[in-house]
Simulated assay, not measured.
Amino acid sequence: MGELHIHSVLVTGANRGIGLGLVRHLLAMLDPPKWVFATCRDPKGQQAQELRNLASKHPNLVIIPLEVTDPDSIQAAAARVAEHLGGSGLNLLINNAGIAKPMSLDHETLENMTQVYTTNTVGALLVGQAFLPLLKKAAQGSPGSALSCTKAALINMSSSPGSIEEVYLWEQALVVSYRCSKAALNMLNKCQSLGYREHGILCVALHPGWVQTDMGGSGSQKPPLTVDASVQGMLKVLSSLSNKDTGTFLDWEGKVVPW
C-alpha cells in the first residue's frame, strides 16, 4: 500500500465521525503532514473535545473555526490557514462537513431542502473558492504536470445515496434532501474538475461507504463499515489518484460509483 505524502491538508467537519477519523489517521502516518488543519463550527464546544485532545499531543494539528454556510467564517479560516502556511500552498482540501435530515418524500420541507443543500453543496463550493488561491500555490510549487493529492487536490465527500442510478439504501434511508444535495455535489465536483484542471488541481468525489457514525448509524440497521476501515481505504485511494481520476466519483475502495 502506498502511503499519502503531503505537506498540508485541511479537513472540514473534523470534530467527529469520518472527519475526526481522517485527522487521526493523518496524524498517525509514518510521514505525517507538516500541517493538519481541522475545522469545525465550535472548536471550544463539547463535541470538539477529542479534537482538542489530539491537538495537545500533536503540534502539527491546528484547529480552526469554520461554518461552511457562512462566507465570512470561510474567508477568516482561509486567512488563518494562509498565515500558518507562510509562503507555501495547501496540498489537500477535504470537503467533509455535511448534514442529513431524515424525512420521507411526502413530508420533505422547504426548510430541510434549503438547509441541507446549503451545507452539503453550496458550502463545498464556497470553501473551494476560498481555498483556491492556496491550492493553486501548492500546484505551482510542485514540479511536473501530473495531477495528484501530493501536488494539489480538492476532495468532496459525497455518498452513493446521491447516485441517481443506484439510489443506494432507499428503504433504509429516506433522506430525500441529503440524496439531492449529494447528487448536486457530484455535479459541482465535475465542474470543479473542469475549471481547476488548468491550475493543476485534481478534483474527486468520494463515497466513504456506509459507516458507523452518528449520521450513518441513525437508522435501525447497523452500518457494515467502521470509521477506521473507511478512512484507511480512502487514504489508500487518495495516495493513488492521478490525471485519469479527476472529475470521477469513487468509493473507499477506489471503485467507480455510477452517477
Rank of each mutant, 00 (worst) to 15 (best):
E67D: 15
G217L: 03
L20E: 13
C180F: 14
I201P: 00
L20H: 10
D31H: 13
I164T: 12
T69R: 11
I6T: 10
K57T: 05
V116M: 11
M113H: 10
P143I: 02
N15T: 09
T213K: 12
N53W: 09
P258S: 04
N243M: 09
S88N: 13
W252L: 02
Y117R: 07
L61E: 04
D31G: 06
E67K: 13
D106H: 11
C203I: 03
V211G: 08
K236E: 11
V11Q: 00
V176W: 09
A38T: 03
Y178F: 04
L20D: 07
S177D: 15
V175F: 11
T118D: 15
D251N: 11
F131R: 01
L225G: 01
P258K: 03
Q129N: 09
M234I: 06
L26Y: 04
Q172K: 14
E3M: 14
D245R: 02
L238W: 03
G216V: 07
D214Q: 11
K222S: 14
Q49H: 13
C40R: 04
F131G: 04
R80H: 15
G128N: 00
R52I: 03
L154M: 15
T246H: 09
N112P: 08
T69K: 13
S181V: 03
S160L: 06
T121M: 07
P32N: 01
P258C: 10
H84E: 12
Y117V: 14
K44A: 15
Y196I: 04
H207F: 04
S73W: 05
S159A: 11
S142F: 15
Q192N: 10
C149F: 00
R24A: 07
L225V: 02
E253F: 06
A146M: 12
S158F: 01
H5K: 14
H25D: 08
E165M: 09
K137P: 04
K255M: 07
D72V: 08
S73Y: 07
R80I: 06
T69C: 13
A152I: 00
W35N: 12
M157W: 00
A97V: 00
F249M: 05
G219K: 07
V62W: 09
V9T: 05
